[in-house]
Design a protein around this nucleic acid. Structure first.
Length: 268
DNA sequence: GCGTGATGTTGAA
DNA sequence: TCAACCTCACGCC
């Protein structure tokens, strides 16, 4: 689940369910008991997202959450179910609860520590004021592949393996092209597209990237949903036919992650 | 029941 | 480059 769109959605859901009211905080699992005790009964003022980082604000105390690869949230309405032993943090008020499991990070930090995290993250396509030019500065000077740059949170915050693969496909860009070989307009096009795709990801809570003209219906193919829950062109479609050209989708390891692309549609 | 892999990141070698 | 961390769902006995 967790690319940037998930985290922005979680921030919005927290604001909706908890902001402005006192909240009960517990750590049924026990690994965050001290932090939970410190915010228990206090007012959650605001929830914010930057890239894949979630911040829950209690005055100058912030709960910093990063889901990592496995972290998950379960939101619910009404009375809380019995806690299970993997719930790291449970927030609850009379109307709602939110259970956090499996995060890489769940820690109490200060405003200054939060600022340090913002400072080391690149611009986020989902943060309205963020400047794609800052990312371009790094991309245009780098010999690193554009595929690796897109996953580097210091360059762009919030893009993960799915959006990376999909945005490169949608722009016909070979993943192995060095950043400095891209044009400014190619970069600006990908940035604008990421902003739109991720915005829709927040709205629908899933990743869909297939244009209307390439949907199975439009292409006269049987309907289908990819097993991660959205409609995509290349992500986890290794050895399957490309929705556009019919060629085989390829996969390869790149910096410990699986890369997917269509050699026919994504030319050097 | 066991093994595998996954939309992520860090820190050591 | 690799192991470590965190959890769960799925396929295959």
């Amino acid at each position: 689940m967790p690319e940037g769109h998930t985290i922005h959605r979680l921030a919005a859901d927290h604001n909706h369910a908890f902001a402005g009211r006192a909240v009960r905080a517990t750590s049924p699992q026990g690994k965050f008991s001290d932090g939970a005790a410190l915010v228990d009964g206090r007012v959650l003022e605001t929830a914010e997202a930057h890239g894949k980082h979630l911040f829950l604000g209690f005055g100058d105390d912030w709960v910093h959450i990063h889901l990592g690869l496995f972290g998950k949230y379960a939101f619910g309405a009404g009375p809380v179910p019995p806690p299970t032993e993997t719930v790291r943090l449970r927030l609850a008020n009379p109307d709602s609860y939110a259970d956090l499991r499996g995060p890489t990070t769940c820690a109490l930090i200060t405003g200054a520590e939060k600022q340090a995290i913002h400072d080391r993250l690149g611009p986020d396509p989902l943060r309205p004021g963020d400047d794609p030019g800052k990312a371009w500065q790094r991309v245009s000077r780098s010999r690193t592949s554009v595929a690796a740059l897109l996953m580097d949170q210091k360059v762009v915050a919030g893009v993960g393996n799915v959006y990376r693969a999909e945005v490169l496909f949608r722009h016909g860009i070979d993943p192995y092209r060095p950043g400095r070989d891209l044009t400014r307009s190619e970069w600006d096009g990908m940035w604008a597209d990421l902003a739109a795709l991720m915005r829709e990801g927040v709205r629908n809570n899933r990743i869909d990237t297939v244009r209307p003209e390439h949907t199975p219906e439009a292409m006269g193919r049987p309907p289908r949903v990819d097993d991660h829950g959205g409609e995509v062109y290349v992500y986890r479609r290794a050895a399957m036919p490309c929705h556009v050209c019919g060629g085989e989708i390829r996969t390869a390891g790149l910096a410990a992650r699986n890369l997917f692309w269509c050699p026919g549609c994504q030319q050097r």
